[in-house]
Amino acid sequence: MFVIADEVREALANERPVVALESTVIAHGLPSPTNLTIAHEMEANVRAAGAVPATIALFDGTIHVGLSDEQFERLAAPGVEKVNLSNLSLVLARQGVGATTVAATIWCAAKVGIDVMTTGGIGGVHHGEAWDVSSDLPALAQTPVAVVCSGAKSILDLRRTREWLETWGIPVVGVETDVFPAFFSRLTELPVDVRVETPEEAAHIVGVHRTVRESGILVTVPVPAEHEVPVAAFNRFLAAANAELAAHNIRGADVTPALLDALARISEGATLRANEALLRNNATMAARLAVALSQLDEELSAR
């Protein structure tokens, strides 16, 4: 079922730090050719900080942990399915190509023994009906992986998302922030559970959490200040982009790429630059967290 790249297998066997990366960012999250560039830069950042990157995706009926350049190219091609926990087995059974969301990525990561994952933002509770909840949230509640992210996607109901996390016992750590970030924006009114100044400091909390709970933990990192799109400005861009989609009657699977395109154009590239910046930064932070966790494990085993 799992095909683990040699580099990742060796790192896991030797208890060296590994960071899982999602693959929807390549297939659905960023426009081409930025998607491949950023995916490679994220892996490079993980390596530069001393960890091994393990991008996860589905190919031909198997789950691949750690990808080749050719597999990255296949993910960037059209027709890739977005994989969460509800369709993971279906895509495997059909031997399709699948890009993993946060939910599917952490499930796969936990199965092979990876403790840390990086992403841009998690899914959450949607505006409107309270039952419209991303599968990322229940996956986080059940999967012992630390997810480094810039909060939840800006288009979500962040207040309800934050309440969901609290209700289901998923601690939220803020790195250099007192508040739960809103992806493109650094500032919200929603507090994190604890503020730390570095990912190394967060590692101590993650380490303790692992020993007492079998659930995920969020380590939130705000978008770098120089690339921030303030929340009200983002919502203006989003409203204009939605109006454009409605005017062109764009629906279904075409909505997300069309929306991302429209957002990038209307914001004159600001949303895209913010997205890229936070992805790169989160990859570095996740690697530092994984390295620090690995050192903690070493210290514990040496006692």
């Binding site: 505006h127 929340v231 919502n235 203006r236 989003l238 409203a239």
Partner: peptide, 12 residues
């Protein structure tokens, strides 16, 4: 809280 909620309007 009011300013945050104004910023979060889907129709700003």
């Amino acid at each position: 809280p009011l300013l945050h909620s104004i910023a979060a309007q889907t129709r700003p």
